[in-house]
Amino acid sequence: MTPNSSTPLLQISDLHVRYGPVHAVRGISLDVYQGEIVTVIGANGAGKSSTLLSIAGAEKLSSGSITFQGIEVGGKKSPFMVSRGVNLVPEGRHIFSRLTVEENLEMGAFSLKDPSPIPARKEHVFATFPVLGERKDQLGGTLSGGEQQMLAMGRALMVAPKLLLLDEPSLGLAPLIVKTVFETIIAFRKAGTTILLVEQNANMALRHADRGYLLENGMIVGEGTGKELLVDPAVREAYLGA
């Protein structure tokens, strides 16, 4: 079932996340292999974002382990994870609206000790998203929703991440833009970035993903390849509205 039999790039086992009395993530285990697009689908509040946040080091895990490239990274802070090549594009994009587009990209590269690759990567982002190049001196807050999503993804690309965590990249975007976003994700994968994608838009996500996990009440209730899940009757009923 796994496309690659070597050790996974990211391996999560028995992850728990608690917020006070709320037990948001209850023992999730999942693997992401080099070069894959893996999606986690589930309803609101299923624990998807908490999982991503704890991988990215922005949320404390209560127990369990996260290994990246064979090294235990559970409980490490975001700056460490970014320097390791794990980058999260959070839900709601969170671009810096009072910084210019270009400054936003520079902030994405903050953790680089050596600034020499920055200009080239900026050019790469501008090549991927031409609209950002046109607006590089504009304040982030003046961009449209789709442009902001592109900026958020471009910002993450500034450190050339090995693993990109995308939280609801299509949320609140027009269908046409959603299509562009997914095309970009495919392009990222072609360029060598592994992707862990959390989506409510299960249809789009499963269609583009190699594999998927179903998350319910903080637990994994199913997994399979994207195509398998897309035709799974239970999945169709619960997430695809068919």
Binding site: A56, A58, K77, S78, P79, V82, S83, N87, L88, P90, H94, I95, F96, S97, R98, L99, E103, E106, M107, G108, F110, S111, R155, A156, V159
Partner: peptide, 19 residues
């Protein structure tokens, strides 16, 4: 710039790797 970014969105500033 990191100061401005942190002032605006501390959590996101952390996520992009700002200490």
């Amino acid at each position: 710039k990191a100061m401005r970014a942190t002032a605006e969105d501390r959590r996101m500033a952390g996520l992009v790797g700002i200490d």
